[in-house]
């Protein structure tokens, strides 16, 4: 099918885009990379009356260091993130995960901010942002505010952005010392929506005991699913095979509600979560042992 008619505006600057947003509110649908929105429009699932194309706003495309954070402009493409040395050096979890996002052709156009603001429960970027406690900068004509990842994601395709705001920047804090990371997912074909995926972080103390863990899952709930009670149980423990198995059972058993699909029953998604939790914790633990 083909998209329904809409009015199209392509501002050159953020200031112009925010003025349009203030004027039109939720009627002004942002067009970022368009790799989720345009398919939805082609199917006429989405029929926005006004598109504000943000692609000409080059001031929103950057990756830079600020203090101990990596700051990424919302319109930075996923392939720019994938190829960036600062990301590789300072944000290994993000760097490891980006190649799992769809296909190379999609990542050439798809943006980090677009994926985060879209908040598809099956998407990789929200899971990584939540695991890393990233912060989101929302700007309006009248100012800006920072939103922690925990508050930004509010459920099925829903984020904490007001009708006057656009997401403009994402800040990823550096990993603490002695922290290992791992992202894994199971998809039927590379680039398809995964049936389950996990971002795991393990921080060890000087004696090798788990100081902090983080387990965040994709496609097992209405957004990125943070198994925080399971992660809290790992604190103060040695990361043994037994501890990893117990964590996997608890996370899959108590902390997720996968919906199931034609390709995977909820039980199978939980099975995947158990296996991925064990594997990802193992890798994250090994990496923590050799991290600085």
């Amino acid at each position: 099918m083909k998209p329904a008619s809409f009015k199209y505006l392509a501002p050159d600057s953020l200031a112009e885009a925010l003025a349009l947003r203030a004027e039109h509110g939720d009627d002004a649908k942002a067009l970022a990379g368009g790799q989720s929105l345009i398919p939805a429009m082609n199917f006429r699932v989405a029929q926005p009356s006004l598109l504000v194309d943000l692609n000409k706003i080059n001031e929103l495309r950057y990756i830079r260091r600020e203090g101990n954070e990596l700051r990424i402009g919302a319109m930075t493409t996923q392939s720019a993130v994938e190829r960036n040395d600062l990301v590789a050096k300072h944000q290994p979890l993000l760097f490891e995960t980006v190649p799992f996002v769809a296909h190379p052709q999609i990542r050439n156009r798809g943006t980090l901010g677009g994926s985060l603001a879209h908040a598809d429960p099956a998407a990789e970027m929200p899971v990584v942002a939540l695991a890393l406690d990233a912060k989101f900068k929302a700007q309006s004509k009248d100012g800006e505010r920072w939103i922690p990842a925990k508050e930004f994601f509010q459920g099925f395709f829903t984020v904490d952005l007001q009708p006057t705001e656009y997401l403009t920047e994402i800040a990823y804090p550096d990993l603490p010392a002695r922290t290992g990371w791992c992202f894994m997912e199971v998809a039927r074909r590379h680039g398809d929506y995964a049936m389950c995926g996990i971002a795991a972080l393990v921080t060890l103390d000087a004696k090798g005991i788990c100081e902090k863990a983080r387990l965040v899952y994709l496609n097992v709930g209405d957004g990125p699913v943070d198994a925080s009670r399971t992660a809290a149980l790992l604190t103060g423990q040695a990361i043994t095979d037994e501890a990893m198995r117990a964590a996997a059972d608890k996370a899959a058993g108590d902390e997720m509600n996968p919906f199931g699909s034609v390709h995977a029953s909820p039980e199978y998604q939980k099975h995947l979560a158990r296996v991925l939790t064990r594997r990802a914790l193992k890798t994250a633990h090994e990496r923590a042992l050799t991290a600085h």
Binding site: Q35, D53, S79, N108
Partner: peptide, 14 residues
């Protein structure tokens, strides 16, 4: 760069 021309509007090639 390789991109999908079905996921872009013609006007975006500007």
């Amino acid at each position: 760069q390789a991109v999908r021309s079905c996921l872009m509007f013609a006007v975006q090639a500007d």
